[in-house]
Amino acid sequence: MSGPRWLVPLALLGALLVAAPLVGLMARASWGELWTLITAPESLEALALSLRTAVASTALVIVLGVPLGFALRAVHGRVRAALRAVLLAPLVLPPVVGGLALLYAFGRRGLIGAPLEDAGISVAYTTAAVVLAQTFVAMPFMVVSIESALAARGERREAIAATLGASRTRILARITLPALGPALATGAVLAFARALGEFGATLTFAGSLAGVTRTAPLEIYLARETDPDAAVALSLVLLVVAVAVVAIAYRPAAMRGVR
């Protein structure tokens, strides 16, 4: 399907809109000093923190998001529609609103944060808060991925496995999860990328403490005026990661692991 010819100029305009900023970023980069800029202490610190927190939140997304995807399949009708709307809200919620919401839930005087504070546990403005914010915004990718994969496959093999005497846990581990492998990978990769790029919710809920909560996007934002070269260099690193993630997550079905 190539469609009518008048689509072509519009498509070119669209491509320009997406590609021009990327090219602009690359044109601005001082390629000679790139390595020095990336390996500068502040940049490395921010990148390392980003990597650590993104890995941690991806792990949390897997541990909590997969059960949520199953739970969403287990309920029906309006309950499912309502639950889905709530669970997927962070996908479209402005990140700063998410950060504010997190603050009123887990902040020092928040719904859950206040009792935790009394128990001597403080979440807001710590690295844990960064992980929490990233998990909050990244979880929907896993929930959607698992739910649609479950919807697309039948439950026949599971039913047959049950007649063979297998427990639900055994069926989940040996039959359902292996079959969900591609969906799990896609969900995890997208969640990782979203966590890595998180900015608004992190800034609102976790602040911008060097080495503690200042992730790469925050460092870029701070450096954009004082040290634009460093900001561009860090941006290029995130750009490369983003392109790689999209290439992996949305690869054509034919290229996915042949089983």
Binding site: R157, A162, T163, L164, I175
Partner: peptide
């Protein structure tokens, strides 16, 4: 009694072999 405790094993037309 749930399927797994019945001891009634179904061999379906599609064989339903597992991916292992």
């Amino acid at each position: 009694v749930p399927a797994r405790r019945r001891g009634i094993v179904l061999l379906s037309q599609d064989d339903a072999l597992f991916p292992m």
